[in-house]
Nucleic acid binder design. Structure first.
Lengths: 336, 336
DNA sequence: ATGAAAGCGCTAACAT
DNA sequence: ATGTTAGCGCTTTCAT
């Protein structure tokens, strides 16, 4: 059996309180006692039980994280930064990977509650009623990262997706493109679905370019869906000279489809992505992308959450909006 | 304050023991009492405290996982499967991302100990003395996934890297290649460093092909290192007609470098990767790779670990060796 | 079939 | 400056 505080106290010839005091770095312990306790701890190989501590302190230093898919470059990068920032602040991560599995999410939310996690980070916006209700009466600080659920009560760390999509489209227009296809996300998603689509539409409208419904498709942000959907766009007459894909994964899928059809990016068609995932630099041509500050997003999310945990009464009422940034690489060119 | 078992007992007009009994699905509770307790639980929105439970049961249902880099396609895929299998068995994951940071790993190992996790999964093999010592006296079941540290005392879920590398090299030889470059890993790593290199050497030797030191480089498994190292191989006279990179990431980096130099894969040079990461299908040409059963690896790791947790006395003494498999795609061709 | 009470390992009044 | 003790929320003998 692992040694407990009582064993240390006995060995050092002091009370458990004294041991607890040196454990928690309190003053009011004479140096010689402190030394005795420390060597007792060393000899016994004692490590305090976080469990017991949590029980009395009513604080677990645990953050529950719900990721849609850890294998995605986008989410894993945010997760990586979440982990780093959490670790820096002595928080540990309970990670749940839900692959569109509502039951699993519900289960994990319940686990988070049982575990008495101090805070929760959620990275998807498809909240059904059950989950909404569960979350609503959870009484644990919750923050959304990179997404914004329709509910006003929750706060998010996001970019302005509307504006980012607007800027991405404008970039294409500025390059002389007028037939610009769109490969969108899930229109049930407010940020990554609706807002990006609206931004695209508005940019066209502001520049007197008519929206061609036939050049618009919606997918699920993944490579395969970009691969599939662009094929329909390539069949349009006249063919778009540029395509805006609302995720880098979809952009890469689209680029592969173009290539597999014997066409070239960007010579035959320009493609711009969205997110700023590592993939943009891995493929050839490298993907021009409207980037989110992914790493910063993870960091900010944790910092805001920790603030909410520390001061639940003054929880922020406003979303945190980070800046998006166009990073030009090689997948778009001027339309002559 | 969240309701506790005592509140439920009071509300239902029974003892806490009875509540505990229905919570844990024991028999010996009359139906009407059971009903009363259940509705009290519902009305109060009571959720048992995992903390308190863990304290008395001396079981946390927590598994600590140490990943070198969650943003890597290879590790995140294993992690995803670890999570899935753990969740299926009611275990939760405490995830630690160490980016070659020994201090952080040490810290986390200590956190795992404090948290009294039931088991630990480690996915890297660079154990320095400090970590080795820490792990040695941890008294928590530990299993290594996809890697094998030099120490005989720990068990691993791995493939036979030597044989896999041998087979990969033989595939290239079978394609008619005789000048076969090698982009290896870290020679301090037994599995992914040494064994793959030795397999490569042995395959050459068995086929009467002399090893050309100049066509061998060692990197860190990442894209950038593949990109850099292959440049030196391309300068060799005569130039290798094929290259074996011991990770898909390095293979992709190498392919990019080849392309950026105006050469083509596989027409000018064949490149075979290793791992079977998602990347192989994402880039063009798609990467022929000696694949590890990544998904199975995560599943098996958790299953074995859970077995070790349940029966610490009869811990497996043998590594679990999974089968590797060559998946032919488009990055290698016959050398005429 | 149900309940009283001890204790899991620790912290935090409170007392000295 | 140090020690005593009462919980934290639950499970689990042991009684009844």
């Amino acid at each position: 059996m692992a040694p407990k505080i009582k064993d240390v106290a006995k060995k050092a010839g002091v009370s458990v309180t004294t041991v607890s005091r040196v454990l928690n770095g309190e003053k009011y312990v004479k140096d010689d006692l402190k030394e005795r306790v420390k060597s007792a701890i060393d000899e016994l190989g004692y490590t305090p039980s976080h469990i017991a501590r949590s029980l009395v302190r009513k604080k677990t230093n645990l953050i529950g994280v719900i990721v849609p898919d850890v294998t995605s470059s986008f989410y894993s990068t945010i997760l990586s930064n979440i982990e780093q920032t959490a670790s820096l602040n002595d928080y540990n991560l309970l990670v749940c990977n839900i692959i569109e599995d509502t039951d699993k999410e519900l289960k994990y939310l319940n686990v988070f509650k049982e575990m008495r996690v101090d805070g929760i980070i959620i990275m998807h916006e498809k909240l059904n009623d059950e989950i909404r209700e569960m979350i609503g009466k959870l009484d644990i600080p919750i923050i959304f990262s990179s997404v914004k659920p329709p509910d006003q009560q929750f706060i998010s760390v996001i970019i302005d997706d509307y504006e980012a999509a607007y800027d991405a489209t404008r970039y294409l227009i500025g390059l002389g493109h007028e037939r610009i296809g769109f490969i969108g996300g899930d229109m049930r998603d407010v940020t990554s679905g609706q807002n990006r689509y609206i931004g695209y539409c508005k940019a066209l409208a502001d520049n007197g370019i008519p929206l061609v419904e036939d050049c618009v498709r919606f997918g699920d942000y993944k490579t395969q869906s970009g691969y599939t959907l662009i094929q329909e766009l390539l069949d349009c007459e006249p063919r778009p000279t540029a395509v805006f894909a609302v995720s880098d994964d979809m952009a890469v899928g689209a680029m592969n489809a173009v290539r597999d059809r014997g066409l070239a990016v960007p010579d035959d068609i320009s493609i711009i992505g969205f997110d700023g995932s590592q993939l943009t630099e891995l493929v050839r041509p490298r993907v021009t992308s409207m980037e989110q500050p992914i790493r910063e997003m993870g960091t900010v999310t944790v910092n805001v959450l920790i603030e909410m945990i520390a001061h639940p009464e003054k929880a922020p009422k406003q979303d945190v909006i980070l800046r998006h940034e166009l990073v030009v690489r090689d997948s778009c060119r001027r339309n002559e």
